[in-house]
Amino acid sequence: MRFFYVWSGCFVFLIGCDQQPPACASPDGCGQPLPACTDLNCSKWPVGFDWQTHREVALSLAVSDSNGGRLPGTRVEVYAAYDPSLGGTQLLFSGQTNNSGVLELNHRVPKSRSVVWVKVLDGRADPWFTVSVAEGNDVAVAEVLR
């Protein structure tokens, strides 16, 4: 009987709280709502929160002709934003595709940013393209057809 009480006590203890680690470093650990908090002294944040406003993305951009052939040495600029009256703003990169017609770029973007703007400087019309760098797309692969 004593054996039963001991084991049943352990069982109650185990199921009493969510067995998953708490999503937040909350002191109660059991998901109870915390009082509204507006300063750093009482607020809580996810375990491992990195305090970063930006994240790294790896951009791989291939520039190809209409036949699918890659275009090495094509001048490319990448901007954080685009304004119709100003063109690209916040230049992140300027350079050219490599011998395989691909541009590889590591950069930082705000966590809230979903696209970067790519300008292909090959003298043709419609040089602007967008590439998705949304959250979860930290390795952005795109192809531009010229």
Partner: peptide
Amino acid sequence: AANNNAYFPSSQA
């Protein structure tokens, strides 16, 4: 060979 330049946070910022 030609160079590529990446600017952080951007070229004018």
